[in-house]
């Protein structure tokens, strides 16, 4: 059975300071949305699979985030860990509407 993705509005982009991330609670799931300085947007599961660190509090650069607790690094495009072994993050499609609102697609 295929499940269609559901699109959720998250409100205006300026809730996230440039280069940082914030957590949004969507359908009972905690989703971290990253607003890169390049303008690119990414959305992933909010908890680090290693020890549950808050990824939205991490340092973001290029296409990666560093978990603030133990320095695990993840590629935001794929959710895959970089350099160390760890479970990957879930990733979600996030877009910006013409009106400047964020939306995220949940499967």
């Amino acid at each position: 059975m295929s499940v269609a993705a559901t699109r959720h509005s998250l409100g205006p982009l300026d809730q996230i300071p440039a280069g940082e991330a914030r957590v949004f609670s969507v359908d009972g799931r905690a989703i971290a949305v990253f607003r890169c300085r390049s303008g690119e947007l990414f959305a992933t599961s909010a908890e680090c699979p290693h020890r549950g660190g808050p990824l939205a509090d991490g340092v973001v650069g290029g296409h990666a985030v560093i978990c603030p607790l133990h320095g695990y690094l993840f590629d935001l495009r794929t959710g895959q860990p970089v350099g160390r072994e760890c479970a990957p993050l879930s990733t979600y499609r996030v877009t910006l509407t013409g009106g400047g609102d964020l939306t995220v697609d949940l499967a």
Binding site: A4, T6, R7, H8, S9, L10, G11, Q15, I16, P17, R22, V23, F24, S25, V26, D27, A30, V33, P54, A56, D57, T103
Partner: peptide, 19 residues
């Protein structure tokens, strides 16, 4: 320095589903 400086969870406008 930013309204959400000390917030981890963003305050979201009520969920709006757009299937």
């Amino acid at each position: 320095i930013h309204p959400l400086q000390f917030k981890t969870v963003a305050t979201r406008t009520p969920a709006e589903s757009m299937a």
